[in-house]
């Protein structure tokens, strides 16, 4: 016993080191697997406050450019409003949007994130889809009262269900962590003919996004005979490097869709 205590005392430096590293790994693993962890929400709440102060100063810099973009979008929407007959009432009811402003974002890491200035108070819930005027952005993973954290497509764990616009082959969109402008589409069989410039859109299978939201454009596709699937690189249509306004998508029937999916999973396990 005495020897043990002596040993511990002698190696206290290494022991403290190991203890703190274990805490670190615990933090890392707990936040990676449990998206709802309270710790994470608290961290969003505090960092959100500081970032929104910072953003108040920064927003003036990009104001003109942002204004122009919004005006452009306004015009486009108005045009659509006039030309489109009122025939998709169901779609309008299924999806509602909440506009939000990005107050903090990264794009140069293996796992990036975005913080927006809307939170639980404004009706934001976790697992909502997020789009910008040019394409999809990601999904909400943590919500605090006034802020929310988004896992963008540029995240090692982000998987989006996508399809080719002109053919109905579908696959998963992932990001290989190399280039913030280029993502990969997986699970497309070799026999599908894919051309450079083909458009990739969301499939809308899990209720996160409506069907047909813009994702990107194919820049290269190569067949891999050993795998049976093609390697497709696509240029993301959303520019994550100057993202400012985003829209959160609220799917009014998502809980219905989820419970249906869950019942299938339960059935599968049996």
């Amino acid at each position: 016993m005495r020897n043990l205590l002596e040993f511990l005392w002698k190696n206290q430096f290494t022991l403290i080191f190991l203890l703190l590293e274990v805490v670190g790994f615990f933090l890392l693993s707990s936040t990676n697997s449990f998206h709802q962890s309270k710790l994470y929400s608290a961290s969003v709440a505090y960092s959100g406050k500081i970032y929104s102060i910072n953003q108040a100063y920064q927003q003036y810099i990009g104001l003109q450019e942002e204004n122009a973009r919004l005006r452009e979008e306004n015009a486009m929407l108005r045009e659509e409003l006039f030309t489109r007959p009122v025939n998709n009432k169901l779609l309008n009811k299924t999806f509602e949007t909440i506009p939000a402003t990005v107050i903090m974002s990264t794009f140069n890491r293996g796992s990036n994130f975005i913080i927006i200035n809307k939170g639980e108070q404004d009706g934001v819930r976790s697992e909502m889809g997020v789009i910008s005027t040019s394409g999809i952005v990601g999904r909400v993973i943590h919500v605090s009262d006034k802020y929310a954290a988004i896992m963008p497509v540029l995240h090692s764990q982000s998987i989006t269900s996508v399809r080719l616009k002109n053919q109905d082959y579908f696959g998963r969109c992932k990001w290989n962590q190399y280039d913030p402008e280029i993502a990969q589409m997986l699970d497309v069989p070799n026999h599908v003919v894919i051309n450079e410039g083909d458009t990739i859109v969301t499939r809308g299978s899990n209720g996160l996004f409506p069907n047909g939201e813009m994702v990107g454009v194919v820049i290269s596709a190569s067949k891999d005979p050993s795998e049976g699937f093609q390697e497709i690189n696509l240029k993301l249509s959303t520019n994550f490097q100057n993202l400012k306004s985003v829209y959160l998508i609220q799917n009014n029937f998502k809980s219905e869709l989820d419970s249906l999916e869950n019942s299938i999973n339960v059935w599968d396990e049996k």
Partner: peptide, 12 residues
């Protein structure tokens, strides 16, 4: 970590 939403990484 708290500010970068990467709990654990910078700590380790």
């Amino acid at each position: 970590d708290i500010f970068s939403q990467t709990l654990g990484m910078h700590t380790i």
